[in-house]
Each structure stands twice: as structure tokens, then as C-alpha cells.
């Protein structure tokens, strides 16, 4: 049952989706490439997920589910990635009161710092996993240009994504003439 293994894969992703967004894109890649998508297909999907409304992790889940199992797959993948976060929020009050009852309150400051370190490490892993796969100068140039634009200007990353797509489409079109 491919759809069930998609659901399981995204449920696992949901468990460690602290910080949301980019921190878990690397893990999503481990789960879906090469089982359900190839490397280039996954990169395109992430770019689409980033340039449509909504959280990137959620969008990536929806798209992978859709690719592999239509609307049912999309529903299942999206629901699975959110299942653990919902459980965590719903049980937090209970767990906090149990901890307090034992005189061991949660140290919010320490938790924040621990999660900052851990999610930044996850992002570095994502960067390593998604490092440019080819030495094509155009591909490397687009990666560098989008870094500069997103890191040093206030422009939305959307413009980097659309611009890079248009540049590559124009380049390939001209090369084909």
C-alpha cells in the first residue's frame, strides 16, 4: 500500500518538524527520494511549495501525496504531517500539569535554546542534502544569486524562484534554437 507508506513517512516527518519550514525539507527528501520522486523533481516541488501560499512543509507533503495518490494521497499526506503536532499541542497542558505536580516545571528558556540549536542543525543537514547536484554554471549561478537576494535584500524569495525559472526557461529555449 503505497498510500499508507506515504502517510507513515509524513507522520514521522511531523514528529521532528520543530521550527517548521526548511528544517525538515532534508528529512522529507530522505523519505521520498528516490522512492517516489527523483532528485530534480523534488527540488522543483520544493520551489513550488515555497512559492505557493502556506507553510512549505505542509505544501511539500500535499504535493508529494498528490503526485503519488491523487486527492486521497494529498489528504493523507497533509493529515499525517499534522497529526503529531496536533497531539503535542493537545496534550501539552496535561503534560505540563503532571510535571508541575512532581515539582519539575518545564524550563521554557532552556527548551527554546535547545530547539534553536537542534533546528539550525536540521537546516544545515537540509542544506547538505540539497547542495547543488550538478556543476552546471547556470544552476550554480542561480543558487548563488538566490542566496544573495534572500540573505541581503528585503525582496521576497518568490522573486528569486520566479526569476530563476524564467532565466532557465529562456536559456534552454535559446540553446535549442
Amino acid at each position: 500500500m503505497e498510500i499508507l507508506s506515504i502517510a507513515w513517512a509524513f507522520f514521522k516527518v511531523g514528529i521532528v518538524s520543530f521550527g517548521g519550514g526548511w528544517s525538515i525539507v532534508g528529512l522529507i527528501k530522505h523519505e521520498v527520494v528516490p522512492r517516489w520522486l527523483d532528485d530534480e523533481g523534488f527540488r522543483s516541488l520544493v520551489a513550488i511549495a515555497q512559492s505557493t501560499p502556506g507553510p512549505i512543509a505542509l505544501n511539500a507533503a500535499t504535493l508529494v501525496g498528490w503526485e503519488r495518490g491523487g486527492i486521497l494521497g494529498a489528504l493523507l499526506a497533509t493529515g499525517s504531517v499534522l497529526a503529531f503536532p496536533v497531539l503535542a499541542v493537545a496534550s501539552a497542558g496535561f503534560i505540563a500539569s503532571r510535571l508541575a505536580a512532581r515539582g519539575r516545571g518545564l524550563d521554557q528558556g532552556a527548551l527554546d535554546e535547545a530547539l534553536r540549536t537542534a533546528t539550525l542543525a536540521m537546516m544545515l543537514m537540509t542544506l547538505w542534502t540539497l547542495r547543488p547536484a550538478s556543476l552546471d554554471p547556470l544552476v550554480l549561478g542561480l543558487a548563488l544569486a538566490s542566496f544573495a537576494l534572500a540573505a541581503f535584500t528585503k525582496l521576497s524569495p518568490l522573486w528569486a524562484i520566479l526569476g530563476a525559472g524564467a532565466a532557465k526557461a529562456a536559456w534552454d529555449l535559446l540553446a535549442g534554437l
Binding site: 530534480e40 522543483s44 520551489a47 537546516m123 524562484i161
Partner: peptide
């Protein structure tokens, strides 16, 4: 073909965007 080229170009930005997010977070840490 043009759609595939567009998607490949869009996908090429992904490492740059991740690196930029890391850069921004690391600077404020």
C-alpha cells in the same frame, strides 16, 4: 519542455534559499 526548464530553474534556487535562511538565523543567534 519550457515548463520543465522553468521548474528546473526554480529548483536550482533551493540550496540558495536554505543557505539564506540559515544565514539569517545564525546571525541573530
Amino acid at each position: 519542455a519550457p515548463v520543465r526548464s522553468f521548474l528546473a530553474g526554480a529548483g536550482a534556487t533551493v540550496p540558495g534559499l536554505v543557505a539564506a535562511m540559515i544565514w539569517k538565523i545564525a546571525r541573530k543567534r
